Computed example of a mutant assay.
Amino acid sequence: MKIIDAHIHLDQYKNQTIERIINDAEAEIAVSTNLESSKRTARLSKNYKQIKPAFGYHPEQSLPSERELAQLISWIKTNGREDAAIGEVGLPFYLSKKNQLHQPIGQYIEVLEAFIMTAKELDQPIVLHAVYDDASIVCDLLEKNSVRKAHFHWFKGSKAVAARLIRNGYNISITPDILYEEEIRQLAETFPITSIMAETDGPWPFNDPFKGKLTRPNMIHAVINEIANIKHLNRNEVYVQIFVNTRKFYFSSQ
């Protein structure tokens, strides 16, 4: 059955590892974390037809200067192919939780809105790192800028926030921890199957059946099987629906 890894940091793998895993899936949505990461992702996407690149600045780090942000957005507008996406961008939930924010949260929100506006200008999908209460702030920004093609990767949040995402027609993606994390299992049950994609967030490591294993796109098969079990749906139909969801979200312009 065909699969797409809806969120993976391929630029963080060694070249020989990419060669080993690239054919695991029909396609991989390869996200970036800063300008240099975006440039490597762009190079990889030229070498491998399976890669759809996404360019952005990951929020769980010190923010770029105004000059660096302008340089990155200018590079995206100049070098971003028509089939690219914006991401990974969002808000620093985990830094904030550890009281390790490098700048005031308002500055992170301003940077995120700059990327949201870029996504709107380029008419590209946007890949978001936004969990729990941060997801509500991001929804405010998306609604303000009339951006609807939003992918909340590895989403976690309350029933109220989940309902807002569903109401707005946003997509989420489920990771391999659905096999052992009750919170993720409940979200898979809550969201309609038409709003769900599957991802690895590789090279992020996972536990239980995946402990000690290289994170690679073929783990998506276990994710889809578990989604089918949780939602009491036909396994083959879930494979098809999640594949269709991801192609429609990321490749509908092709």
Rank of each mutant, 00 (worst) to 15 (best):
A6W: 00
H9P: 08
L10M: 07
D11E: 13
Q12R: 10
K14H: 13
N15M: 14
N15E: 14
I18P: 00
R20E: 09
R20V: 04
I21E: 01
I22R: 03
N23G: 15
N23F: 03
D24P: 00
D24I: 04
I29R: 03
I29A: 02
I29W: 04
I29S: 01
A30D: 08
V31I: 12
S32I: 01
T33P: 03
T33W: 15
L35C: 08
L35F: 11
R40G: 02
L44Q: 04
S45R: 04
K46W: 15
N47Y: 13
K49I: 11
Q50H: 12
I51M: 05
K52C: 13
P53S: 05
Y57Q: 11
H58F: 12
E60H: 05
E60S: 06
E60R: 09
S62G: 11
S62Q: 07
L63W: 05
L63Q: 01
P64F: 05
S65C: 05
E66R: 10
R67D: 12
R67V: 15
A70L: 14
A70I: 11
A70T: 09
Q71A: 06
Q71P: 13
Q71F: 05
Q71C: 13
L72E: 06
I73C: 04
I73Q: 02
S74P: 14
S74C: 11
I76H: 06
I76F: 04
I76G: 00
K77I: 07
T78I: 12
T78K: 08
T78V: 10
T78W: 02
T78P: 02
T78M: 10
R81E: 08
D83C: 15
A85N: 10
A85P: 00
A85L: 13
I86N: 00
I86V: 13
G87Y: 04
E88H: 01
V89F: 12
P92Q: 09
P92F: 14
S96G: 07
K97H: 12
K98T: 09
K98M: 10
N99V: 08
H102M: 05
Q103Y: 15
Q103H: 13
P104N: 01
P104I: 02
I105G: 02
G106W: 01
G106F: 03
Q107E: 04
Y108D: 01
I109G: 02
V111L: 10
L112I: 05
E113H: 04
E113V: 06
A114G: 09
M117C: 14
T118D: 07
A119P: 03
A119E: 00
K120Y: 15
E121H: 12
E121A: 11
L122P: 03
D123S: 09
I126F: 05
I126W: 04
V127L: 06
V127P: 06
V127M: 04
H129A: 08
A130S: 07
A130M: 07
V131N: 14
V131E: 10
D133R: 12
D133E: 15
S136D: 13
I137T: 14
I137E: 14
C139R: 08
C139V: 13
L141P: 01
L141F: 09
